[in-house]
Design a protein around this nucleic acid. Structure first.
Lengths: 200, 200
DNA sequence: CGCCGAGTTGAACTGAATCAAGAAACGTGG
DNA sequence: CCACGTTTCTTGATTCAGTTCAACTCGGCG
């Protein structure tokens, strides 16, 4: 299983060497959590952004009927957070849960300030991360509004190539906004299409 | 019709007086556009955020079948932008169009820098705007994933109380992600429910 | 007056949800 | 290493929310 340390993540995006950065990062809080553990629950205030070094997170919400809707997955190298809750210091609508044993770096304002002192360009990098987040949300909206279940599934595989292999299909269905049975049928149809393509 | 100047917008959110701010804002580019004019078209790079002083904008995209999907409306006091396109300097997937005659302030990096020099807290305010945007996108996703057409319509009225009165119903339907006929039926059902409530 | 776009209504259709049952895969303990 | 129970996945039948297509109404406006 991959392991993308926070240090590698930063040094490959900023012009700083690991040896310069690591003294600062040693002060960053880390977390080892087991599968199924919660990093955030509905109603709590989200205090951190979670950088996933190892493992896999999911962020999801419950609707009024108690149904789960997965907002995003966070495999290695991704940051998961409820930025709304962090920034406005409000109770979160989301759960963030480990789907595998995870190693997580906790990012908060004090860490951001610490890194920024050492590497001024981190301020800009942080803004870039924020815009990446906006881009991801915007794409999600476009897909929900204008794609069929099958198209969304294909986009999903492109975005998260390995997640189908790491989580139960039910969860992918929940991300796509369709019933598990529907995802099963979508996959069956795609398999048939491919078979026909190869044998005509 | 309302008229929320950019100056008022800033002075009521930052601790600065209009007389201190206005010399700086006089350098901000303004735009008067007529109904139906485009401020951005698909494929163009979005160079500005658009602050609506007067009038009404819509941001929408076309899907592969040529169908319009309205991402957001921008009435007085709102900012409309494709931040993805601006920040990453990429061609936009969206159109931004005036639905009424509009007065628009153009916000770009140079203006942000200019204001920030005069009012340092504008940097933070700008970050707040970014997080407001994230919040709006997140709510949109939640609604698309877990709300019925009727629930989305009710949320829409709460968010944009007067827009139903200012645009053709077709556009509201497009924002909600439903067919115009469906919105008509949703409204009919709601009217019936209210009638029954009042007369039992 | 007559036209035209917007909205409504009805009827048939469709993609996906739901409900139900069975098959396959999985891990845990004996 | 197998047996068992649990979870996950598949498949079929039915239902349902919302779409599509078509006809009709209404209000404004040249």
């Amino acid at each position: 299983m991959k392991n993308l340390t926070f240090s590698t993540f930063l040094t490959s995006n900023l012009s700083i060497t690991p040896s310069d950065l690591d003294p600062v990062l040693s002060k960053a809080k880390s977390l080892e959590v087991r599968k199924d553990a919660f990093l955030l629950q509905e109603g709590e205030k989200c205090k951190y952004s979670f950088y996933v070094e190892k493992g896999l997170l999911r962020q999801y919400m419950l609707d009024t009927k108690g149904k789960e809707h997965i907002i995003s997955f966070g495999p290695e190298g991704w940051i998961i957070s409820d930025r709304e809750s962090v920034f406005f210091n409000q109770p979160s609508k989301f759960f963030i849960q480990a789907l595998e044993d995870c190693t997580i770096k906790l990012i908060d304002d004090s860490l951001v300030r610490l890194i920024s002192e050492k590497v001024p360009s981190f301020v800009d990098f942080n803004t870039r991360l924020l815009h990446n987040h906006i881009r991801a949300l915007q794409n999600r909206i476009i897909q929900l509004m204008s794609y069929t279940a099958e198209e969304r599934y294909l986009e999903f595989i492109a975005l998260y190539p390995d997640i189908m292999l790491r989580v139960p299909q039910t969860m992918v269905a929940s991300y796509l906004g369709i019933a598990p049975e529907s995802l099963s049928r979508v996959r069956k149809d795609l398999a048939n299409k491919n078979f026909n393509k190869k044998h005509t």
